[in-house]
Structures are given as C-alpha cells and as structure tokens.
Design a protein around this nucleic acid. Structure first.
Lengths: 295, 295
DNA sequence: GCGTTTTAGTGTGGGGCGTAAACAGTATGT
DNA sequence: ACATACTGTTTACGCCCCACACTAAAACGC
C-alpha cells in the first residue's frame, strides 16, 4: 500500500517517469503533486508517446465507476486502453500515484457554485455537492488516506469555499479550519450513506435467499429503499445482547414503537449539515465574524 | 476486497468454519456478526483445536499496530502464531471476516466513562476517547467500509453514549442520529490528524534528504512536531497556482502573516468537538430536549 | 546523412497475496 | 472397534504490483 517512488533528491531520476531535472526547490514537492500540476519536463528525443497519463486516469475512473475500486488494477486498465500493463509505468510512477491522480480528477466534476446567497447557503451548497459526489462515486471513500494531496481541482474547490466566506472577517487559517471541518463532515456523511445502502442491499439479498454474487441490478429497487439499514443492529440487540450489559440501550429502545428506524435519506443529509452549520454559526458569532443582522 | 463467504441459507455449511445449523431466524444475520457474538455451534468430535480465533485476531492486531494494516496478511499472521496460513481458515471464514473481528476488538479498549457530569461533558469525553483511539491505531481508518457491523464492544460503546443521553428527552432514533453524527466526526478528526502527521513526517524526511524507506523512528520528533503540515499546500499555491484561477485563496492568503498555519494539535480536536456540540446543543434546545437551566 | 542518445512500449519473471481442494492424523460417539 | 467429524498441512491456482532487459522509434550533434 505504501511504496516508495520518490527518487533521492539530486540523483538522476530512475528510468520510467522522469521527474523535472533542474536543481532548485522543485525537488522538494512529492512527485505526484508535481505531476498533478503539470510540472513535468517535456520530452526531447524518442518516439512520440501514444499513451498519456490522462487517458490512463480516465480509463481507471471508468473502471472504478463500473466495477468498484477493487477492479482497478494495472492489468485491467492496460486492457482498457489497449496496451501492455507495463506501458502504464511510462506515464505514471506506480499505482499509488495513479490513485492520487484519480482522486484529484473526480474533483473536476464539482459544480461551480452560484455567487449570490449568504455564507450559510453557500457553505451548505458546497458541502452538499461534495456529499453527492461521494455518493455517486462510492469508491472515492475507499481511496487510501495518502491519496489526497493538493491538486488543481481540489484547490479550485477550496477556492470556492473561500469565495463563499469572502465577506466573513476571519483570519485565513481559521477559515481553513472551518472548511476543513465541513470537509470532514462530507466524508462521514457520504460514508454513512454508502454503508447503509450496502446494508439495505444485503438485507434484501438475504430475504430473497440469494447469494452475495447476485448483482444488485437484479434486486427490487423498491425493496432496497424500503429496507431497514439498522436491521442487523436491532436483531442483534433482540437476540444476543444481554440487557444487563447494555442497560441504556434497552431502556431507550424498550419504549420504541414497532416502526423501526427510518433509512437515512436526503433529510438526514440536511440534518447533519444543519447541525454542523449551527455550530459554525455559533463560532462565527463568538468571533464577531458575522454581522448581527443576519439571522 | 469483497468476497462472498456467506453460504446459501438452508444449505449445509461448507467445510471450514461451520455456521450454526439449526433452521430458524439465525441464518438471517451475516456470518461474521454471528461469530462476533459467539453464536457458533460447539464442536463435538475431532482433535482439540490448538489455535483459536481470539489468538488469530490478537496476532493480527499486533501486526497492524507494529507495521500497519498492509502488513496484516494471512501468511504473516500464520507465521506469528506458528501455524500454516491455511490453518487460519478453520477459525475465521476469510480475511474479510478477520478484519471485522479486528474492528470490534479494538473497540474493547475504549474506557468506561464516568457517570457524573452533564450530557455535554459526557459526549465530549465519549468523542475524545474515540478520536484518541483512532490516533493511536491509525490503521483502523484504513479498514474497508464494510468492516463495521454491530459487535459486542461497539454496541457497548454505543450503550455508553445512551447512558450519557439518559436524561435527554428525545426519541431513541433521534439520539441515534446525534450519536452517529459524533461518530462521523470522530472518523474525520482522527483522519485529519493522521494525515497531517504523515505529511509532517514526509516533510521532515524530504528536508533531511532521506528516502521514504527511512523509518520514522530515526527522525527527530521535535522536527516532526514543528513541521508545517500545510507546507505542500502553501508551496503549490505559491509556485504553481495561477492567481486568476484561484482568486479567493490568493486574496485571503495575501494578507497572511509569514507565520504559517499551525499544525493541528489537541486544541484543534477541541475546536472540532466544540463546534459540533454547539450544533447539537442548538438542536436539542430546538427540540425542547434539554432544560433551560443548563447554560 | 549518420551515428548516438534518449525515449515508448513489450516480454518475462519474481515475490506477494487470498484461498480452493485434497489429504493425514486425532479425538469422539456408537 | 469402527465410523465420523474435526484440525491443521500440503499443494496449487489465479490474481496482484512492478523490476529488468529488450526492441523499435524519434530527435540531436556533427
């Protein structure tokens, strides 16, 4: 999972995937970040490259969308673009770098936010767009922790957040902290959504007596939506859990109506966002960063 | 990454890792959850097992702590416990199930919360304990999304949260939503911490001209603490980013003092928690769930 | 124009992974 | 005592990422 691809600074780059040569501060940045910003020395000699990093990344994205991150292997990508697996290594340092490029590429699909509206509506739209992106590309959340350095698209999205906070008088590092908190919330919310959907799908499969191998497309979408993602939790509580070891849960859920917990829906996205934004609003007020006439 | 280990319900279990046989509702739960709660039929014949799932999980935890999740392979675990890799499959259905068992096992280390104190202090302690657990075992966050079904330890921890919210008058599903929001925050906060620490370590390595292969233990801890985890972001902004494509960032950071962003510290943990709790408090008030005499 | 040098893509193979299948040996139930 | 059921081993398969040595092609210096 963590492979060293960084050449020792000052040394000539290894054979495939050359890095910018000129001495100077450039060598300080991780190689993947330099590639992200197009800071690669152009080739002078040799055959014209037919493949390109962009095509590789695009194929990888399509593969991930269609079959999940597990299907994204060098061999599969090579097959998709019509080359040998090893050909990819001329354009991408390794799989780790490829994942980094993918993670910035998905951020390119984020929309441009409308300029009007208050800071709160703006931040809500900013957050929502990301949650929806995460839900539409569930494999994003499986990317390794290290695959999120600052790339052009991510930074552009950050810039939009700072645009929303333009009129807020707060030092930039505090703005960064606020935005970072929202970004965290995005990850969590998308993750919960994806997990509960998977749980619902599993539940439907089990009820229908099907194997996990049955593709989701053969399942009844209505049944999936109606499924209770907390079913396992409730079953475990009822069947295995001892009331004396979990007294508080039993006390709370004893008075619970038969109607089980509702599945997280769009309303739950709003629930989370509004709570976090309430907290942020309280913070901004405390810091005197927003005028009092904004309710 | 996603392997089908669930036998078709009603069919006899496959050879290794037998499931509870008796017909009835038991077969409805995922096999891993049943194992988690010790719902496995005891053996009657054959040699006494020398290995056990517990020992396997323990070895896996030690490996993950020492060398990260990537080092946790069936072969390495087998080596650690002194058996053949295939021996593990007599006690654990597969790697997926092993990860699930690990994920509940780490939750066993969560402390018992003190009973006194208000709901807010209680929730803060509850959240903090989890963040610290996540920071102390960074590999937890790399576990696949699916590895978090309700196990005894996790449920116990959830029970503690409900204990904290005992005096709050709120239907249990709303309590669950609130607690879930905090659990999300935990994941995000721990993730940010780990990522920024990794970034700091990388920065120190690069400044010292070392390879990524250099173990972290050889690095100066003081330098790591002093390192700026946003260094890459700032460098990228200064070197590659075009002010016209990122106007808001440039405007904000133009007036920024030389002193760079401070690394996330314990104070930043408090920052995030307090904002989320402020939001929750506003919600509880809106729902009339807390008395007015609590400030 | 011609060698030299650099580069793009290929072929092969090594070491790792998870795990299916057949097997030897051991303790229990009858 | 025998059949049965169980544990742990052996062997092997198919996948993975990637190092290395190779061929063929493009551009530079003369």
């Amino acid at each position: 999972m963590s492979i060293d691809t960084t050449p020792e600074p000052g040394e000539p780059p290894r054979d495939p995937v050359e890095r910018p040569q000129g001495t100077g501060p450039e060598t300080e940045l991780p190689a993947a970040v330099q590639r992200l910003w197009g800071a690669v020395a152009p080739r002078r000699r040799g055959p014209k490259p037919a493949l390109s990093a962009a095509r590789i990344v695009q194929a990888a994205l399509e593969l991930a969308d269609a079959e999940g991150l597990a299907a994204v292997s060098m061999a599969r990508i090579a097959e998709a673009v019509g080359y040998t697996p090893m050909a990819l290594y001329r354009h991408v340092a390794g799989k780790e770098e490829l994942l980094i490029l993918m993670s910035d590429a998905v951020a390119a699909d984020l929309p441009v936010l409308p300029a009007e509206g208050g800071w709160r509506a703006g931040l809500e739209a900013w957050t929502r767009a990301q949650i929806e992106l995460g839900i539409s590309r569930p494999w994003m959340l499986e990317l390794p922790l290290s695959a999120a350095p600052p790339g052009p698209n991510r930074v552009r999205w950050l810039d939009q957040a700072f645009g929303v906070l333009r009129s807020i008088e707060l030092p930039p590092d505090e703005k960064l902290a606020v935005v970072g908190l929202l970004a965290q919330h995005v990850l969590g919310e998308a993750r919960v959504h994806i997990e509960s959907r998977r749980a619902a799908v599993q539940q439907v499969r089990r009820e229908a007596g099907l194997t996990d191998a049955t593709p989701e497309s053969e399942l009844d979408p209505a049944a999936i939506n109606a499924a209770n993602p907390y079913a396992d939790f409730e079953t475990v509580l009822a069947r295995y859990a001892d009331p004396t070891t979990y007294p508080n849960l039993f006390e709370s859920f004893a008075t619970w109506p038969e109607n089980p917990t509702t599945a997280p829906s769009d309303d739950d996205i709003a629930f989370g966002i509004s709570i976090v934004l309430d907290g942020i609003e309280a913070y901004l007020r405390r810091r005197g960063a927003i005028p009092d006439d904004e309710s």
